[in-house]
Write a protein that binds this DNA or RNA. Structure first.
Lengths: 348, 348
DNA sequence: GACAACATTGTTAGCGTTAACATACGAGGC
DNA sequence: GCCTCGTATGTTAACGCTAACAATGTTGTC
């Protein structure tokens, strides 16, 4: 089944075997209409016999389209980014695009530029950046060149098209839920202060408190890790021991919430009897913690789909040369509160 | 800074601006020695001025090397695969390779072939498959064509080069640890039975029990999810109520272990007072659960590095035409027991 | 039966790069 | 001064594909 010489077969080999010109082979492969049915079959038989695969490199060279999209991410082992990546991957595959991935080790502008260069070198047609940090988004926005780009969780004001979960709304719902249960206020443990999600959730928390006329206690700054949740949970236990009324905690993500639960348990405090806890993310474990964790669900698959759609729109607009008429798009995916066992009324 | 006509600049544009031939530009870009220092500078200035980037497609066409590696994965949102992927990505980038990713929606042979075709279409030079399932490995092993391939967690006997964590040893250490604490036997909740890791851990568990002369209770089959851990935890509680001596449980992964902890807690059983629990994976949350979870750590970053090294070796061997003299490689990364609060001596 | 319209195929010319060969020039040995 | 050698550059021909055009047949219309 090999072409003369043992090389991997090329179009000309198929053409020779099928007794047609290489252009006819190309037509068959690309599903061009005006080819006789019998010829199509003959060519396909030849393709199968030789085990021919079209050389995508040569095709890309002449069509000027690589069919490759880039994904630039910061930490794909975290729950949110991993889910988003999976969503993008699936959407891209369904749209017939290949996906090339590059991770950032740090968010310095130099690192971002290097990563973007890496993708540009590879002639990606566009790029989705899972860009949860302020500095990263700014570095992206200032990239030279006409690379179509979409930022996931990119915040506002960067001028980039953005897809994000409505973090503010999610946080507000969580806080309102706790206030509605009768808590006089809600404490907050923030995620990594460099992350935009962290900022947005803190903003929603603050706004919900202010709207309800509740006091706004000083928030604590974590780094998303269970360890920081534990440490800051202990800090809150200390404040409570010092007389502060700490009966409800809105934690920036579920991993930190696990650390908080641990700290409360060590201090002999019941959840939700003494203190209520609400997290963010709805990791699969949340429902099976003890107690099960109230949290805010984000539809990452939807984020992935939306960001791909936005990127494809941009690529299309760039190809037709038309400027984006609606300006940089911004699509917001709603978040959804999941009430579970870790939130209840305050102690009397 | 634009080339005539507003096209993206090509080598000839740079050559014209620098007053040299395009081949000299190529020499400068590729760091060829015999170019006068002054010429190098002139060319580099022209490159900067035009914002020129080499067209990787054209280069790949003529060199027959794409510098792209494929990663084929099943579910990259799970902890292990996500970590492994991150490790591979970093190693690939350091080696100057691009990474193209494709996920499998199902592990049917047809799905595997489609995914592999997708990568072959893209002219990847080789492929790493994060292939935790028996059927997937078999489908991979039977792929036609000379694509260099490495399987991560691919089990034995497939004929493919494999990198894996020593699941058996990890499981044995976990079980021996529990037996050493005085438990008369150890129960086991398996992961998804289709996964090789599941099989290997169950094998290690059984072997450790048999070596110690301990009875081997019927294992329970889960699916890695917290929910299945919870359900099977309740089942074990039931067996215990029926008189069976259940004092130690080795759980196939940490997520299921969380469900087990929940089930034990609901039944009023103390951990480790009444029942000891050991998981597998060492997810970041493990240390901060209540109680902190004893588990088995796997160095996924190392797995990523090793698999990339193995693949590059294969690619090199293929290029030089030399058959792999050592046969399909197999590299095993040791696992490591992490003793924490969820394992202790049995009740008297 | 002549002409138009269409369906089917073939021929040619790139896409932007690198490899191979060709050329020009200066330095050094006899 | 002639030849050799090494360095620096230019010229030409691929790589495997698609787009554009050209060249056939094949039908239908009047």
């Amino acid at each position: 089944m090999n072409p003369p010489g043992g090389r991997t077969p090329v179009m000309a080999d198929v053409a020779r075997l099928a007794g047609v010109s290489h252009q006819t082979v190309s037509r068959v492969i690309n599903g061009h209409p005006n080819v006789r049915q019998e010829t199509v079959l003959r060519v396909q038989r030849a393709i199968d016999e030789l085990g021919y695969h079209r050389n995508s490199t040569a095709r890309a060279l002449v069509t000027r389209r690589t069919n490759v999209l880039g994904v630039l991410a910061f930490d794909t082992t975290l729950f949110g980014p991993a889910q988003t990546l999976a969503g993008i991957e699936r959407a891209a595959r369904e749209a017939g695009y290949f996906l090339s991935m590059v991770s950032l080790d740090d968010v310095s502008p130099a690192g971002v530029v290097a990563a973007a260069d890496f993708l540009i070198q590879q002639s990606v047609e566009g790029c989705i950046a899972i860009a949860p940090q302020r500095g990263l988004v700014d570095a992206l926005a200032s990239l030279p060149g006409p690379l179509p780009l979409v930022a996931v969780e990119g915040g506002e004001g960067s001028g980039l098209p953005v897809v994000c979960v409505d973090q503010v709304q999610g946080a507000e719902e969580a806080v309102r839920h706790l206030l509605a249960l009768g808590h006089h206020t809600v404490h907050h443990i923030e995620g990594d202060p460099l992350w935009l999600e962290s900022e947005a959730r803190a903003f929603g928390w603050r706004r919900a408190l202010e709207e309800a006329g509740a006091p706004v206690p000083e928030p604590l700054q974590g780094d998303w890790s269970p360890r920081s949740g534990y440490d800051l949970g202990r800090a809150l236990v200390g404040r409570r021991a010092a007389g502060e009324r700490v009966t409800a905690i809105f934690v920036g993500n579920d991993q930190m919430a696990i650390g908080v639960l641990r700290a409360l348990h060590e201090a002999g405090l019941g959840v939700p009897g003494d203190v209520s806890v609400v997290g963010f993310d709805d990791i699969p474990e949340a429902e099976y913690l003890t107690p099960s964790l109230s949290t805010v669900y984000q539809d990452f698959a939807q984020v992935g789909r939306e960001s791909l759609a936005l990127l494809l729109g941009e690529i299309g607009a760039g190809r037709t040369g038309s400027a984006d008429p609606a300006g940089a798009g911004r699509r917001v995916v709603p978040a959804e509160l999941r009430q579970r066992g870790s939130s209840g009324p305050p102690p009397p």
